[in-house]
Design a protein around this nucleic acid. Sequence first.
DNA 1: CGACATGTTGAACCTCATCAACCGACGTGG
DNA 2: CCACGTCGGTTGATGAGGTTCAACATGTCG
Lengths: 243, 243
Amino acid sequence: MDAQGLVCNSCAIRHRAVCGAMSDTELLELNRISNRRTFEAGQIIMADNEPSEFFANVISGVVKLTKTLCDGREQIVGLLFASDFVGRAYRPENQFSAEAATNTELCCIPRSRFERLLGKHPDLERRLFQHTLNELDCCRDWALLLGRKSAEEKVASFLTMIARRVPNIGCAHSDELKVTRFELPLTRADMADYLGLTIETVSRQITRLKTKGLIALDANREIVVPDIDKLSELAHIGPEAGA
Amino acid sequence: MDAQGLVCNSCAIRHRAVCGAMSDTELLELNRISNRRTFEAGQIIMADNEPSEFFANVISGVVKLTKTLCDGREQIVGLLFASDFVGRAYRPENQFSAEAATNTELCCIPRSRFERLLGKHPDLERRLFQHTLNELDCCRDWALLLGRKSAEEKVASFLTMIARRVPNIGCAHSDELKVTRFELPLTRADMADYLGLTIETVSRQITRLKTKGLIALDANREIVVPDIDKLSELAHIGPEAGA
DNA sequence: CGACATGTTGAACCTCATCAACCGACGTGG
DNA sequence: CCACGTCGGTTGATGAGGTTCAACATGTCG
């Protein structure tokens, strides 16, 4: 039974998440074995190379997947947003750790039960497969960014991606003027780890974009983008890439 | 019917490729709809953002997946070796182009027929899914490399990965002395595009490894690694990562 | 208030990119 | 047969883009 007594049926991410594959009756079954959990920013959800006993859907918040070298260098190899799936099917442990980047709400499902479900419902498995294919596409976009883009392009790419995937903050003129406004879900340190840069470089590039007039900061984490097209042009993002 | 009259049953990659999921009778079906094709080094197999009419298994050779920025910067976002799968299920086009890095032999299957097969054989789909999961793992390893490793570590990582995935060349002392010896399937330019470096840096790092005694060159493309453990130590590769 | 975390800015340094010259192998055509 | 161009690769000199180290600013919490 769901911890909060909520039913999957009314779940905010029901249609976009893997559960979108399931019929109402199947959802009842899923509902019985899933439970919501919250993680505070910084908490480890799944540890590197340790078996985890559950899978999860992200309901709200952002989860970062990180790899760490023995000498402490760190790289974020994936970001998960609402409706994304956490965990590695067919293998109990990941080769990276999953950590809450912000306060996060997850819908958790015990590993064994979910795998049984996968075996029974080909539609569910197919849906998860497609999710994985999309993740692979994103990862490859990111490889291009990490290997070939300048610091400025990296930061601009990151901001355009976040603008697309994070709920926008309404403001008076947002609709008429196409102003985009959102809260950064990551610290400068996390941004650096995601972009293959240092904190200082990220900070400098942000002030550079600011002086260029491409973005404005209402607070350290609150970004206003007057013209998202200009920003993404600077980012050298191909058609529909970036997330 | 297979072009060479070969049956899948006796295929060299039968057990490692996705077809490993299929029974003998199913293989007969697969055999009817598949055909072998060869591609010379440099030939495009699937073009960026263009629908391709077939999927394929790599039988021999190496295929590179590349993304190109509008200004010509290029990044290889994946390498495929024998038994790997080419193509994107559930979507006719890729967001990158697939190109033969060496002379390559592929086992091609028409897109529509293969997708019908996928629908009929959940085992096949599961197998392809697992293949995709592995590819995603590799891609994330590579993100760590691209984002956080030095040029020397990158080249060392690349060589250890290739040593593991490419058929080794036998030589007199290879067995007793644990000497690894293989042919590089990529030009320096391709290596640079894979590692997020320039040709010159790759070349310099190779000569550096040579003077350090970590590798030796019999020819430009023929690498001898006296002690693979030392090399992979320098590469800072975690447990079982790198491919 | 002080301690701590997050973020910005400055100066010096270093890795790697850039530009350029050069080498050897190979193929081609006069 | 040799001159020539091309391709893959190496090496050198130079400089720019990012890192590193350090100081400082701001905000939050006990």
